[in-house]
Amino acid sequence: MGLIGMNQLTEEEKYEHFMKRIEAGEKIEADDWMPEEYRMALIKLISMHGISEIMGALPEKEWVPRAPSLRRKLGIMAKVQDEMGHGQLLLRVAEDLIKPLGKTREDLIQDLFSGRLKFHNVFHMPAPSWGDAGLIGWLVDGAAIITQTNMLNASYGPYARALKRICAEEVFHAQHGEAIIMALAEGSEQQREMLQDAINRWWESLLMFFGPDKAERTGSSKQDITIKYKIRTKTNEELRQDFFNKYIPRIKSLGLTVPDETMYYDEEQEKWIYQQPDWNKLKQIMKNQGPKSEERLKLRMTAYETNAWVREALGVKSKAM
């Protein structure tokens, strides 16, 4: 492709050239030509991923001031800080993608408030005990690590680079979560119960974490497009099976159980057979009608609006400078 090449190509030729690049493992950059479908799929995926990190800080954040020791207070502060930091990285990637559409972070935040921009299903759930704080770090982050590492080689360069930073920190998150649940698992009867309750409470959400295996379950799924464009490689179901492979043996080794008595590993099919969660609940959550959807959105909205004067004050200033 020569210097003036790109402009002279038809849309079709541009598309072909683009597909050749991603098939050759090249990375697409923010200002490169990209098909509309690709841009839109990225915007949807990355803005949701980013805003989920920001909203995901909230259930754990409830436990930051209440963490039971100084070390745990420091650990969970650092962990929730990372979630905000991951949100920052991902929103920056999304913001560069929406820039040509004339949009900014302000629009993303407003889209969150209006319900146009969704946040991940797990963050609509309550976290009523310290056991939940541990479980989120252990299993929810474990699930997040599985989906995020699946996209480390994403064809979109800025996303792949952000994920590389994020996954490096997720290793700390996983260990932070394990430290909390290990103390509970090896603790008193009451502490073990706290942990088992949390697993029971979160099991269905963990199954839903990876999304439906087929679009019919909820009426929509973007997995095909993201695989076509080499943004990710594995299907929702493959990721869920990876999660079972990694975590079911660990759960069992601690003498804990999952609330699905029928679940077993089928040696022949080489996969876990489990009871489907109630996907209608996911549909509700996708409409921001989950158990904590409204409360968490309101928390973020109140904080954002209460602080609007700060952004106005310095925004005006930078204009004057």
């Binding site: 800080a57 207070k73 502060m77 800080q81 905000m84 973020r300 904080a303 700060v310 952004r311």
Partner: peptide, 12 residues
Amino acid sequence: GSEWLGLAPHIE
């Protein structure tokens, strides 16, 4: 300060 976590005027 830790109560502010997630609620500051600006993500950064």
